[in-house]
Simulated scan of single mutants.
Amino acid sequence: MENQDALLVLARARLPDALFRHLLAAHAEPAAALAAARHGAGLPLACREALARPCPRRLDADRAWLDKPGRRLLAWNSPDYPALLRRTPWPPALLFLHGDPSLLWHPQVALVGSRRPSPAGRQRAHDFAANLAGAGWAVTSGLAEGIDAAAHAGALAVGGRTLAVVGTGLDQAYPPGHAALMARIAAEGLVLGEHPPGTPAIASHFPSRNRVVAGLSLATVVLEAALRSGALISARLAAEAGREVFALPGSVDNPVARGCHRLIREGATLVESPDQVIEALEPLAASLADDLRSALGAADTAARDAPGQPAGRSAGGQPGDSANHKRLWSALGHDPTPLDELVRRTGLTVAELSSMLLVMELDGRVVADNGRFARHP
């Protein structure tokens, strides 16, 4: 509890992200990072006061929010922090989560675009998301009006995975009319953001939210965007992080297609269908799965290298023989089990379990349903 409280106090102090990350990296425990921050010089007065005299009422409210099921606070130096986001130039120091944290480690595609799309653009966003989610990808977007909402709805419509990155506290739906959609995503997918509960909609938070959308995803697809669209910020940030950027062309008479045309002129890949996105990203997804296998030892090396053996299985057709993999396999049954219960049964971290479960799902050994996992029947 001491370390969680320390993270909450640091979050409320609004430290510069680079300093916040440095403090977490330089100290073994968040409580030590907080003590160091309190003795630091050069911070703005408001930061120093928030660190020295945290508001008890706010701290109690933050604790109460986190104590409810499905909610979590994830620090930048945690092993569960998503690797793709960590590799960007600007990872948030903290993430507030509501929903299934394993989705942070699932291959994601960001679908972004105008808040006021054409009817055809809205339908394309829904259809793209449904096709991508149906093919096993997680669809990530920003819960905004227009393209974002259509993308989330499309993924949910086929029982797929979706993540909503918000620019407010996770107890604040923005726009307010998306409260039901936000609640459904929290129940069936994941809602996340870097701001403490109670944080209202502030204009400057939304461009910074876009860096999280882009940083979590292997690629960003811009479906419709005007020349001064926030979606173009997402595309630029994705390119800066070394990720793929795709754009759909539209009519030259459509003002919300001109941003896409500009991206294509500047080097974004022109796509006309979700299958083209899937085809382009399959090698990246395979590489990511291989990285996860290698990093976590989720598959026995000899079995992986044996001709004709699918990665992640032993020669006998069972999952790989590492100790952690065996522990997970023993913890799994034929009844769907939530990730938190698997953490308890195995003693492994969310990141380790998420990566191994992804490999096992790709290999057809595990089925996933709304954040619950079971052996394939």
Rank of each mutant, 00 (worst) to 15 (best):
E29W: 13
R293V: 14
R243G: 08
G364Y: 05
P307I: 08
V271K: 14
R345N: 04
A241D: 02
R161T: 09
S217Q: 07
A289R: 13
V367F: 04
K68G: 14
H27L: 03
R53N: 09
G312N: 06
A28Y: 00
L353H: 13
A186P: 07
L328G: 09
D60P: 06
D253E: 12
L216S: 11
R344D: 15
A28K: 00
A28N: 04
L104E: 01
G193Y: 04
D275N: 05
L227A: 14
A311E: 01
R211V: 04
R184H: 08
S208K: 01
D62Y: 15
P336A: 07
D300L: 07
A303E: 04
T168M: 05
L23T: 07
A241Q: 12
E49C: 07
A75M: 02
R375Y: 13
F128H: 15
D100F: 02
A201F: 06
F246I: 02
H22Q: 15
A298L: 14
G154R: 12
G154S: 04
G320A: 11
L292M: 12
A315Y: 00
R71L: 03
A231M: 03
P175G: 02
P377S: 10
L23R: 07
V256Y: 14
A203R: 14
H106G: 01
S330Q: 15
P69A: 02
V359E: 12
D148I: 08
P56G: 08
A183P: 00
L84I: 07
A173W: 11
S114P: 09
N370G: 04
A129C: 10
G146T: 10
H334L: 09
G308N: 01
G259A: 04
E282K: 00
L263P: 11
L66T: 02
L296E: 09
L104K: 13
H376R: 10
R48N: 01
V277M: 10
A187K: 04
G121T: 03
H106N: 06
G40F: 00
L163C: 15
T162N: 09
A37I: 06
L51I: 10
D62G: 10
A201G: 08
G242P: 00
K68F: 05
A203H: 05
G317Y: 10
G136Q: 05
C55W: 05
L163H: 00
G316D: 13
E224F: 15
V367D: 11
G267V: 06
R265A: 14
R86T: 03
K326L: 14
A286R: 15
I185S: 05
D80M: 12
A50W: 13
D80F: 01
G198N: 01
E272A: 12
R262I: 01
L143V: 08
M1I: 02
A151H: 02
R228K: 15
D290S: 06
G320L: 09
R228H: 13
M1Q: 11
A311C: 05
G142D: 01
L59H: 03
P54T: 06
A214G: 12
A52D: 13
S229A: 10
A11W: 15
S355K: 03
E341Q: 12
N324R: 10
L170Y: 00
R21V: 07
A180N: 08
V158S: 05
A179E: 13
L95P: 11
A33P: 15
S287Q: 15
N3H: 15
S204R: 14
S330R: 14
D275L: 07
